[in-house]
């Protein structure tokens, strides 16, 4: 039986990363994650097997983020309309049972994939994602046109995607579907 502190330490960072998918403000994201742990503490769910708790934690963070988005939609009725819409597509995608890498992969695996990128890709990812520079700042720093930095970031992400998806496969057996053929 997993104990509460263990779960908190193991999943806090991943849940926070997950909520930052939708929630720009870090303090809001921290609140969301705290509330989820409060719920798990109070309803005793943390006493269940780790797999169940993990599924519960992630589906709670998904629901909280969706609610957050709904709320944002009301608050910022006219601003950033398409941006919110894009986030909503994303939220619906994950609500339908799809799993994010944050949920599936260990973060170490992702970091290993970053380490194995070629130098020019690794450089932009580190500057953008780890040092938090804006694209424009990276362009100045590396003395490159902005567009080049942007396509490079995209391609670095796309290479990471391949690296990770080639390493592990999720075998899904849709028995019903296969039988129909």
């Amino acid at each position: 039986m997993p104990d509460f502190d263990f779960l908190f330490r193991k999943y806090h960072r991943r849940l926070l990363l997950y909520s930052l998918k939708y929630v720009e403000s870090e303090s809001d994201a921290l609140d969301i994650v705290q509330n989820i742990f409060v719920a798990v503490w109070e309803n005793g769910k943390y006493k269940q097997s780790e797999n169940l708790v993990k599924a519960y934690l992630f589906s709670s963070v998904k629901n909280s983020c969706l609610n957050y988005l709904k709320h944002q939609k009301i608050v910022r009725q006219f601003e950033h309309e398409s941006g919110l819409y894009i986030r909503e597509i994303e939220a619906i995608h994950y609500q339908s049972g799809e799993k994010s890498l944050i949920e599936n992969e260990s973060l170490k695996q992702i970091n290993d994939a970053i380490d194995s990128l070629t130098e020019i890709y690794k450089e932009v990812i580190l500057l953008s994602r780890f040092e938090g520079l804006k694209n424009q700042e990276i362009a100045v720093k590396l003395n490159l046109p902005l567009r080049t930095v942007e396509t490079r970031i995209f391609r670095a992400l796309s290479t990471l995607k391949e690296k990770i998806s080639q390493k592990s496969f999720f075998i899904l057996l849709y028995l019903k579907g296969l039988q129909k053929k």
């Binding site: 994303e90 994010s100 890498l101 992702i110 938090g132 995209f154 995607k161």
Partner: peptide
């Protein structure tokens, strides 16, 4: 691509403080 973006970022582990 967005998912890769979200999962490859530095996010200091604040679990201890938050706990």
């Amino acid at each position: 691509i967005k998912d890769i973006w979200d999962s490859s970022r530095s996010q200091a582990d604040r679990a201890e403080g938050q706990l």
